Amino acid sequence: MKRLKKKHVVRWITRKVVFPLVYHINALRPIKKDKVLFMEGRFSEVTDNFTEIIRVLEQDYNLDIHYHFLLQGFVSNKETIRRQIAFVKDAATAAFLIYNDASDTQGAFKVRKGTRVLNTWHGAGAFKKFGLSTADKIFGGSRKEQLRYNAHPHYDLFTVSSPEVEWAYVEALGKEKDSESIKGVGLSRTDVFYRKEYIDSAKDKLISEFPEAAGQKVILYAPTFRGRMKRAETPNELDLELFYKELSDEYVVLIKHHPLVKKAKRPVVDDRFKAFAKDVTDTMAISDLLCVSDICITDYSSLIYEYSIFERPMVFFAYDLENYCDWRGFYYNYDEMTPGPVCRTNEEMIDYIKNVEDRFDKKAVHDFREKFMSGCDGHATERIIDMFFGDRIEAYRK
């Protein structure tokens, strides 16, 4: 109890006093007009939410680019605070701040005039609820609790995959009075799906990582996590033995757990199936896996939006649909929105996969793509850079 109380006190002091004070003291210095700062909240390296933007900036401009990795939930509280303070101090003189998630660190201080803020959100579409949309759900705290610590500053641009889903982000971020920044101009990271060389490279990576996949069709199993983010669990309902028995002549299975699920909590692939199934969570990026997969099995993961770009079959393994809906909820009716069969059992999935050529409804996937991914056309990065930076970095063009 004392530890929990101390945790809340530390959070209040850092977000309400320390971070704003550090920012405003350092903001007494002038803005560096060529300074661009990227911040990753949880991960130790730059994710694909940033990579295409960084590639263009490094290729075409001479800019002072900074990176911060907070590793929240993955290092000690003391180390996290040290990283947060370093980020806040550095942000105070940046001309451009770029995020890809929600964080009460980035929302703790009011950004100074002259600094522009971009969020290249990490999920496409609008599937499971998040942010303030979960205020009445088990997953989220009360609206009052969530509003106590601001997770989002004022944005100049917040990118989503399509105009269709802008309303959901306005609700989740609580931006009803500041909705004009949320734009369905596309997600930068999806541009790679339109490049043949990227897809070919992904195929090469697959064979290098899993030679047994050569000549086989690929099933990707990529479930989302269960529970709360800091203690994320992964499902263990996929019956690999049955899949092996029924499908191993034609298919291999690649397993990609949610990145929040720590390795110790992931099911281990039985040695009997190691030529048929492989956990590639730590060895292959999800963008590569979407390129090489012939069928995707998921549940409530937003990767279905990106996968729809390829217009390939999807299977929804929703064995716990009612519980998940009570826990977190959805922005659209689950059964009506999903562009593929919703299955409760392994047997249903196997039956569909065996008959996929006859049962696959490509038009349903195409219509889904047009509705939810219209901004992701292979040119999102150039639109985002033009809208966010404009002519402010022309002086630094190579």
Score class of each variant (00 low, 15 high):
Glu241Phe: 03
Tyr99Cys: 03
Val170Met: 03
Tyr324Lys: 07
Pro313Met: 09
Asp361Ile: 08
Val160Cys: 08
Phe38Met: 13
Lys205Thr: 08
Leu21Ile: 14
Ser287Asn: 14
Ile54Glu: 10
Cys376Met: 03
Leu71Gln: 13
Leu28Ser: 03
Ser76Thr: 15
Ser44Lys: 13
Asp271Cys: 00
Phe389Pro: 01
Asp249Gly: 12
Leu173Tyr: 15
Gly375Gln: 03
Leu242Val: 01
Lys2Asp: 06
Ile85Asp: 04
Glu311Lys: 14
Gly140Asp: 07
Val36Tyr: 06
Val192Cys: 09
Gln72Leu: 14
Pro30Glu: 08
Tyr319Thr: 06
Ser142Asp: 07
Asp200Lys: 13
Lys196Asp: 14
Lys278Ile: 11
Gly131Thr: 13
Lys175Asn: 08
Phe372Tyr: 15
Glu58Asn: 15
Gly184Asp: 09
Lys7Val: 07
Leu118Pro: 01
Gly329Asn: 08
Ser188Leu: 02
Ala108Asp: 05
Val111Gln: 04
Val192Phe: 02
Tyr244Gly: 01
Ile350Pro: 02
Tyr300Thr: 05
Lys354Arg: 12
Thr14Ser: 09
Tyr194His: 13
Val292Cys: 05
Lys5Asn: 06
Val46Gln: 07
Lys205Phe: 12
Trp167Val: 10
Ile304Val: 15
Gly215Arg: 13
Val268Gly: 00
Leu21Tyr: 11
Asp249Glu: 15
Cys296Thr: 13
Lys32Cys: 07
Arg226Ser: 01
Leu303Asn: 04
Asn333Asp: 15
Tyr155Ile: 11
Leu4Ser: 12
